[in-house]
Design a protein around this nucleic acid. Structure first.
Length: 472
RNA sequence: GGUCCCAUCGUCUAGAGGUUAGGACUCAAGAUUUUCAUUCUUGCAACAGGGGUUCGAUUCCCCUUGGGAUCACCA
């Protein structure tokens, strides 16, 4: 049987990295053996709905190449794929569940239920409505009295279920809460909609955060009451900000779009998060989505939470940037140049020196800022023992270089390098004694992307000469 | 607090009774380089603690400690 998995986010805002990772694992489990990946929108909480959130979900999935086989926008055999459009269905099933004994009508208000729980004895909610006879309850419902449908848990003993990553898990039925399945507004809760949809949509593998482990027995009870086959469970560990905090929107940079905005490549982000809590069993670390589809194995998923390490993402992003076709990199760089470059410089040359040096696209702005405006710098910068130069030598070198450059017609990195080296040889100077001062005069920085000749070729003749003349 | 889950370098991890405990990121050193970066080489760095089981435990069991999750008309 083909695997069918679903990504079922609630449209509450940005795409959380942890969610994206879950989606990725779902996608990979489905694609690994040619199954289907279903997109379902879980918007049963009207209060939390955020305008535009669905588009973010679509766009994120698309930019990383995780295409869904069924979903709200493209339809499919088991639609609709938006829960708010399936209300009737949930209501029917909820009432049916009551008939089957898996749930009951409850007429308590939310406050009444809460009150009972504030009790220090931290006992779970004991619903008085459980004692109302079904006929009586139905009569009150028919009379228009406000009600919710609550799960009925009468089972005693231990519930046992298997999880792909955690193995066998045992939970006492007494610890389970008789939660609300259908709210008084007629909307289902996640606890119910999720089960109904997963069954109706023929989902074979339920992948979700491990915070759902403790409520899984409740879902199994619902499957059981309906006589349905429960899915295979894959509960994945959390992605953490640090040892004690989950990655959250509050802490910043928890969302896919934040990362993209900070100059990380979508493919790199996806590659990195695939490896948070999973490894292929080989030493390979760089994976395309295609490659992941081939080698992903949910059995190798890790049980313990993983801390999101931006340092390693940076490194990996750098790998992806270096692996980019030059044209592609240049295109991305151009967008950055437009943000801060008004000067007319050799942008292609600039991209060439930048590509092996930046780790995020946004590094470009910082690294190349000196091209737009020469920073204030101390004359002490001309002193460098390793290059065997000091202010004196620097001044002399630049004076020697100036006339040569003024008559240089071919203005390329190579020709400039030859020219500058020529000056050194003619005057019995070390290469560094010429090149270093020129580089400083051109950039005002101790470390720069590229050497003197590269920077001169980027700046162009006019600006190069201007900066050299200005140096002393 | 009850219940459930987790525990190898700082971080991501390999390991599934016998290994010099391996790799990657970070950091440090060196080589290359017109600075820097890239690339290459080397180095620092871990089995939370205590009991068992066993000829032998990082690995299996128990306890402790630490961490996380959950106990909503949120998902």
């Amino acid at each position: 049987m083909n695997a069918r998995t679903r990504f079922a986010p609630s449209p509450t805002g940005y795409m959380h990295i942890g969610n994206l990772r879950t989606a990725l694992y779902e996608y990979l489990i489905a694609k690994r053996d040619g199954g289907q990946f279903v997109l379902r929108i879980e918007d049963t909480d009207q209060k939390r709905y955020v305008e535009g959130a669905v588009d973010i979900i679509y766009n994120t999935l698309k930019t990383v190449g995780m295409n869904w086989d069924e979903g709200p926008d493209i339809g499919g055999e088991y639609g609709p794929y938006v829960q708010s459009e399936r209300l009737k269905l949930y209501q029917e099933y909820a009432h049916k569940l009551v008939e089957l004994g898996g749930a009951h009508y409850c007429f308590c208000s939310k406050d009444e239920a809460d009150e009972q729980k504030d009790d220090e004895s931290n006992t779970k909610f004991k619903d008085p409505c459980k004692n109302i006879s079904l006929d009586e309850a139905k009569r009150r419902v028919a009379n228009g009295e406000a009600f919710v449908i609550r799960q009925t848990i009468n089972k005693k003993g231990k519930s046992l279920f298997n999880d792909v990553v955690y193995g066998d898990i045992e939970i006492d039925y007494d610890d389970l809460d008789e939660g609300v399945l259908l709210k008084s507004d007629g909307f289902p809760t996640y606890n119910f909609a999720n089960v109904v949809d997963d069954h109706l949509m023929k989902i074979t593998h339920v992948v979700r955060g491990n915070e759902y482990i403790s409520s899984t027995p409740k879902y199994n009870l619902i499957y059981e009451a309906f006589g349905w086959e429960p899915p295979i469970y894959v509960h994945v560990a959390q992605v953490m900000k640090d040892a004690q905090h989950k990655l959250s929107k509050r802490n910043g940079d928890a969302s896919f779009q934040d990362l993209v905005a900070k100059g990380y490549l979508p493919e790199a982000i996806l590659n990195y998060i695939a490896l948070l809590g999973w490894n292929p069993g080989t030493e390979q670390e760089i994976f395309s989505l295609k490659e992941l589809e081939e080698c992903f194995d949910a059995n190798r998923l890790n049980k313990s939470p993983a801390i999101f390490d931006i340092q390693k993402l940076r490194w990996m992003n750098g790998c992806y940037i270096r692996a980019l076709d030059f044209d592609e990199f240049h295109k991305l760089a151009e967008v950055q140049y437009d943000k801060f470059l008004t000067r007319n410089v050799n942008r292609v040359e600039l991209s060439k020196v930048l590509q092996p040096r930046v780790e995020t696209i946004n590094d470009i702005v910082e690294m190349a800022g000196f091209i737009e405006t020469l920073p204030e710098y101390s004359i002490e910068l001309f002193v460098n023992k390793k290059m065997k130069t000091d202010v004196e030598i620097a001044k002399k070198s630049i004076e020697l270089v100036l006339p040569k450059l003024e008559t240089l017609d071919v203005w390329t990195n190579e020709s400039l390098f030859e020219c500058l080296k020529g000056v050194a040889i003619e005057n019995e100077l070390k290469n560094g004694q010429v090149l270093y001062p020129v580089r400083i005069a051109l950039t005002g920085l101790e470390t720069t992307p590229g050497g003197a000749s590269e920077i001169a070729s980027i700046l162009g003749k006019e600006e190069t000469l201007r900066r050299l003349k200005k140096a002393f």
